[in-house]
Design a protein around this nucleic acid. Structure first.
Length: 374
DNA sequence: GGACACTTAAACATAC
DNA sequence: GGTATGTTTAAGTGTC
């Protein structure tokens, strides 16, 4: 964990735009959300590499997570971000270990147990705390895996690996799901088998790709799943707030009481890497300038009334309550966040913008695909 | 209640 | 022969 930090300049020189990295793509993706910064200086890790966009471009094979912040993070003086180097394989899309690797973010104690959060065996200290079944169908998983590959085609084994890499649930699941993957590949018209080039053939089996004519339908299914779960993705927020309260941490609760519905929108975007390159002067001048309607998707962040009883009740209901996290990349330029020229910082409020992991994932895939096309 | 989508399990064939 | 891959069938579940 990076301990050293540097301090941002006063808010007048800071951006209120955070970069949200989408967790799984070999291609760079950027998501932006508007976050009002607190008046006090915020500290960031001093290592430029831990904040640079390059980390967001790391392959999912290392870890889909790179930097994460939680509500408490914004209020504290030290923001400790996770990097691929300090996140183990277990820190994955549906894993909450990251919460406990964040120093002051959450106490180094187990999360409150709920009926939906399976207990870990003591003999598996490095396993994810929780791992619920992803909401995506096998078709969607296969689709995402293939689309996330550079060549847009994968052997079945790599599809397995992608799923396991991104959804810890399948690490411990019995092998039947692999059968289901193969079953889907064979049965679904959405996927097409391609004979490997004999001259370069390594390994068994064929390559699988997505049929272009079914790509739109797959995308729509993924989009619907994403939307459904993104609207139910606030529950971890509430869980974190409860924890903060329980352990006497300074939860940033006010942020969840904002009544302005516009302030509860998260702007997701996947502009081209070039447009968002930190070296791109136009972007440096205005981080939002490259966002186009084609690349935007608004995800409503519901207003939250976080009374204890209600929260607990909802957490137990939510099958994905174990999978939410914020993954925000602070966009750094010359050690300072970039400031949009028209920024009006609300110094009283910190808006907590949070997506659950799967929602981010779906969003990342969707947006990446929507931006890419064939 | 029926159609449909999806999951899971199983059997079998084929290729490496 | 063992394993991975690919195909097919069947049954069960959930949703619309």
């Amino acid at each position: 964990m990076e301990n050293s930090s540097h301090t941002l300049p006063p808010p007048s020189l800071c951006s209120n735009t955070f970069e949200v990295s989408l967790p799984f793509s070999s291609s760079p993706q950027r998501t932006y959300c508007r976050v009002s910064l607190p008046p006090s200086p915020i500290s960031f890790p001093s290592s430029p590499s831990s904040l640079s966009p390059a980390t967001a471009e790391s392959s999912h094979s290392s870890s889909p997570l790179s930097h994460c912040i939680a509500p408490q993070c914004l209020e504290g003086q030290n923001i400790q971000c996770l990097t691929p180097a300090n996140i183990s394989d277990q820190d994955d899309l549906t894993c909450l270990n990251w919460l406990h690797q964040r120093g002051n973010l959450l106490p180094l104690q187990p999360l409150p147990r709920t009926p939906t959060l399976p207990q870990l065996e003591p003999s598996q200290p490095n396993q994810p705390l929780v791992s619920s079944k992803p909401p995506y169908s096998f078709s969607s998983l296969i689709f995402m895996a293939i689309e996330d590959s550079p060549q847009k085609r994968l052997p079945v084994k790599d599809i397995y690996d992608w799923i396991v890499s991104n959804f810890p649930f399948y690490r411990t699941a019995s092998g039947g799901w692999r059968n289901s993957v193969r079953h889907n590949l064979s049965l679904s018209k959405s996927f097409r088998r391609i004979q490997r080039d004999k001259s370069q053939s390594v390994g068994k089996g064929s390559l699988w790709c997505v049929c272009p004519e079914y790509r739109t339908a797959l995308l729509e299914v993924l989009r619907k799943t994403h939307r459904y779960h993104s609207t139910n993705s606030n529950l971890l927020n509430k869980s974190a707030l409860l924890e903060a309260d329980e352990f006497g941490l300074p939860a940033v609760c006010d942020s969840l009481e904002i009544s302005d519905p516009l302030s509860h929108t998260l702007l997701l975007s996947s502009p081209s890497p070039q447009a968002l390159s930190i070296d791109n002067p136009s972007f440096s001048d205005n981080p939002t300038c490259s966002l186009t309607p084609d690349h935007e998707e608004l995800v409503t962040m519901e207003s939250v009334d976080y009374q204890h009883e209600e929260v607990c009740e909802e957490i137990e209901k939510d099958p994905l309550s174990d999978s939410g996290y914020i993954e925000l990349h602070y966009y750094e330029s010359q050690q300072y966040l970039l400031l949009p020229t028209d920024t009006e910082l609300d110094l009283e409020t910190v808006e907590i913008l949070q997506l659950d992991a799967e929602a981010q994932e779906a969003a990342g895939s969707l947006l990446d695909l929507a931006g890419g096309g064939y």
